[in-house]
Amino acid sequence: MTTFGWPEAYFILRGASWTIALTVIAFVIGGLIGGVFAIMRLSRSKLLRRIAAGYILVIQSIPVLMVLFMSYYGLSAAGIELPPFLAASASLAIYASAYLAEIWRGSIESVPRQQWEASASLALTTPQQYRYIILPQAIRISLPPTVGFLVQLVKNTSIVQVVGFVDLMRAGMLVNNATYQAFQIFTLVGAIYFAICFPLSRLSRHLEKVMNASRSH
């Protein structure tokens, strides 16, 4: 039996870099999908609005774990073999897309209606309105909750260890299987998650304060 030492700690840290990579990929892909759903949710077409609302409701009402199982075990049974990293990225991206869509829809809706009217009156097309007037303001509004959601995303990446992908969590479990020093190992693993998440939480809260201050001014 090995004991918990520097090589093990290094192994865990390498897992942490995969956790960050996974978060970034899920955020970028999930953000792209989520952005489309946010705009669909606000579309003039009732059908598009319904589809987007349904998608968001369903994804937010099932465990991320089930999304992961469906894309990994489910698809592999159907003959589509996804490598663990792909399955993990895909399911986390799907999960993120629903929450980001909802956050961003809220942000877009909190841009005053008059901004739409004023820009429409200046003959801007709908895409132009989004690009030049609405999105620049909505993005500012969305920053605090978006950063806050990143914390949720980082934490949720921990479940992908179940498909064998060696992220921070799985690295900790593997070291535990070799050393049986669970207390120290999971303290370290928890501390690393905390080191990633806590600054993001503080940043989110700070941005919110800045935003509130500039709104009342």
Partner: peptide
């Protein structure tokens, strides 16, 4: 509150299930 909100539920669960027996 900060500790719980900034670490994954899974880590908390494993800490209790695998970590606590050690003490």
């Amino acid at each position: 509150v900060e500790l719980m909100r900034n670490t994954p539920f899974l880590v908390q669960l494993f800490m209790i299930f695998f970590g606590l027996p050690q003490i």
